[in-house]
Design a protein around this nucleic acid. Structure first.
Lengths: 343, 343
DNA sequence: GGTAAAAATGTAAGCGCTTACATTCTAGCT
DNA sequence: AGCTAGAATGTAAGCGCTTACATTTTTACC
């Protein structure tokens, strides 16, 4: 049985033949490398158009050892945080002639034994988002000289991979100042995510502020940065008769969970328990009550990561640490009176 | 000046040498193709481990004409809709040994003159999301025999590309039945997005329902599926003294905008104007009032798209049309009394 | 018109793999 | 021991490009 018509791929050779030139010339026209008479160039372009030629990315990458692609490693694809980050990356990357290639580890931790599908073969550099690669693997990649930047995670010791993160501690500190200083709350609980570095820093800000105000009350729950988990934790507290004056959720999703748990218990936010968050995603301004939170410039972080990576690829240099400032967004859930919608 | 230490890439040749075998054997072990003694295989695996060898994806792709990668084309990266879809795709694709490669057109419409960076060179097939490719380009790709599926858009005439979409008209119809039949509303406005196919179908459902109930009132605004645009449209209506009994927003973001505009005008939802949406994303259950909407199985759509594409790649066959059912989610914004939170 | 430098184009050697085919080895026969 | 089928492994030809270098053509100038 004859194989069903295998649609012939158009190759550079076909273009060359059509235009009556050599493949080298075609390549030169396409890549604008080397000089070619305008006449010939036009002829080649016509051939490309006529035949519908599209260069084969893999072949090109193999031959030139560049892919013009940046790999982006995410632990999972979810939520607005991710969207915003990606938007920032994408915008910057596109402006600079690269295309982003995404890979999500879906919770699996990658190591040398379970290596990344993204490597020199298909991208020129990597943006690594949080904790998805184990330390020795990260180190190995880095030693190979593969350009990488890390988002929201300090690189392992001795490995100087550029890092982009928020002023987490500082932001948390500010929020706590507001809760402690303006509202006078003392019994403030913290809802973090164990093992997530952002959360750890925010927690540190929380602790420091508490210490600064000489408050001995401290309550820390693991809301895993997920609404259901956070809701569950707070339900547990309330059931056990532990009723803080305020809950500082280390991200907006946890805040959402906390509010749900409190409201389900028949209590009101912020009158009985205030709740504040971190990130300012999730349309938090539309919640009831509108959420007081710390705005993290997520999109900006994406842009910064892309910028550092491209710089690293091109010049071999990049800033070891980029710290992005956060901003306190006061709405209603902390107990403040209406002022502005925080738009 | 000597070039700074160029870190040598480990190639299959190095592995072969270390293990004392030929590169063909290494390849066979790695791809589990052809027979190799367990002894030799083990030796090769040791070499791989020892040297930290990772195959070069481009070279592999070039030689084998397979990339195990699926390209996913999005108009833009934004919102929860996208996240959910991607999650569905990613889950299915990963289970089947592929990895997704994303490309966002950022609003630009791609054509033959501005071709896709994703092609035979770096992926084995394409999932195309809405209107990001022009018709003749789509046709050309299809004629080349490149496997593709389309999400939320009917393929151009004569081109039988498998298509995955929601029961948009049906879902809109159901919602309208609720508004017309249960609540008895007659002055119902529609907030769509011009040129978006999903919106067009939903609008058709809206019109049909109106006709079925012999309602002559009809008001259609272009909210562009964006909160600010929708808000603006509704502000305009209200300012002009046009006050419908209900607004059917063709997606949740527009619904959000409509609610905002109404509330800003000092009116209440749903008492004075009811608002309903479509998609059930965006934590719509937490809004104030909780949004009555049509749930579209977004994640399921992603999964279905991936499934069809992989089937197409492997067998050359796929279902021409996959229609995913929607579900009416009654909450409060339509005027219904509290029943359940729609969790 | 002749010559040399510059410009334009062509030739061919890879890039790091897979894989068809060739070769060598092993084991089971006679 | 000698022979052979089958298993194990090796050899080498590409995959479709880029690019260093070789060659040819043009231009500018004497």
């Amino acid at each position: 049985m004859p194989k069903s018509r295998e649609p012939q791929r158009v190759r550079i050779e076909d273009v060359a033949e059509w235009a009556g030139v050599s493949i080298a010339t075609v390549s030169r026209v396409l890549n604008k490398t080397g000089r070619v008479t305008e006449e010939t160039a036009e002829l080649v372009r016509e051939a490309v158009e006529e035949l519908g030629y599209v260069p084969h990315a893999a072949a090109r990458g193999l031959a030139s050892r560049k892919t013009n692609t940046l790999g982006i490693i995410f632990p999972e694809i979810a939520g607005l945080f991710f969207s915003a980050l990606l938007r920032g990356i994408e915008a910057y990357v596109a402006e600079n002639g690269y295309q982003p290639l995404l890979y999500s580890t879906q919770g699996k931790k990658l190591s040398r034994h379970n290596p990344l599908p993204l490597n020199e073969g298909n991208c020129d550099g990597l943006i690594i988002f949080t904790d998805s690669l184990d330390e020795s693997y990260l180190r190995q990649l880095h030693e190979r000289g593969f350009p990488m930047v890390i988002l929201h995670r300090t690189p392992p010791e001795g490995v100087n991979i550029p890092c982009i993160t928020f002023e987490n501690k500082q932001g948390a500190r500010q929020m706590m100042e507001h809760l402690l200083g303006v509202h006078g709350y003392r019994r403030i609980a913290f809802l973090g995510a164990e093992g997530v570095e952002d959360s750890t820093w925010r927690e540190l800000g929380y602790r420091e502020a508490l210490a600064a105000y000489d408050v001995s009350f401290g309550l820390i729950g693991n809301g895993k940065f997920l609404e259901p988990a956070a809701r569950h934790v707070v339900q547990g507290w309330l059931a056990d008769g532990i009723v803080p004056e305020a809950i500082f959720a280390a991200d907006d999703e946890s805040a959402r969970g906390a509010i749900a748990a409190i409201q389900e218990s028949g209590r009101t936010v912020p009158q009985e328990i205030a709740v504040v968050g971190f990130d300012d995603t999730l349309l938090a301004q539309y919640w009831s009550p509108p959420l007081t939170t710390v705005r993290a410039p997520i999109e900006e972080a994406g842009r910064a990561a892309a910028a550092q990576l491209i710089r690293l690829i091109r010049t071999g240099q990049a800033d070891p640490l980029t710290l992005l400032p956060t901003e306190l967004i006061i709405r209603r859930s902390c107990g403040c009176p209406v002022r502005n919608s925080g738009r």
